[in-house]
Design a binder for these strands. Structure first.
Length: 139
DNA sequence: GCCAACGTTGGC
DNA sequence: GCCAACGTTGGC
């Protein structure tokens, strides 16, 4: 079991859009970065992820689950780019902002903080627990 | 295969 | 809203 963090611009793909897809989920497409893609290729069915809004609204808003492992990204003909599918699990009772994450010493090593431009990053189990606790989410 | 140029992203 | 940094692309 591994944990991840997915970042998306709410204008392009928001938590509400994700929820609207229901249990079927939707592919996490459009990633054109090797590191982010490699992270996705490492994902297994049933892995959990944090859904994070970027840009103006920088905060973690909910939990998603990987419901399909890596497959070609249908938004491009380029075979290098693959993606996975995720489905919404539950919203955070209390969204966790990026500022709160940066203020939390236990999250100082979070990949998101260290590589802020990467849209798909790994989260350790310890970090996962801290973030869920901050968001009032009972995993 | 290297390197310059461009586009995108995030910080301030 | 500007600017710096990063990563990807394309030309040589």
């Amino acid at each position: 079991m591994a944990y991840w963090l997915f970042k998306s611009e709410p204008n392009t793909w928001s938590w509400d859009d994700q929820v609207a897809k229901g249990a079927a989920g939707e592919q996490w497409d459009g990633v054109r970065n090797y590191l982010a893609r490699n992270n996705m290729k490492a994902m297994k069915l049933g892995d959990f992820g944090l859904f994070c809004h970027s840009v103006n609204e920088k905060r973690i808003v909910g939990v998603v689950e990987v419901c399909s492992e890596a497959h070609p990204d249908t938004t491009t003909d380029d075979p290098r780019w693959e993606c996975i599918d995720v489905r919404a699990v539950a919203p955070f009772p209390r969204p966790v902002s990026l500022a709160e994450i940066k203020a939390e010493p236990r999250l100082s090593e979070l990949a998101l903080v260290r590589q802020s431009r990467l849209s798909v990053v790994p989260v350790t189990e310890a970090e996962w627990r801290v973030i869920c606790e901050m968001g009032g989410y009972q995993g």
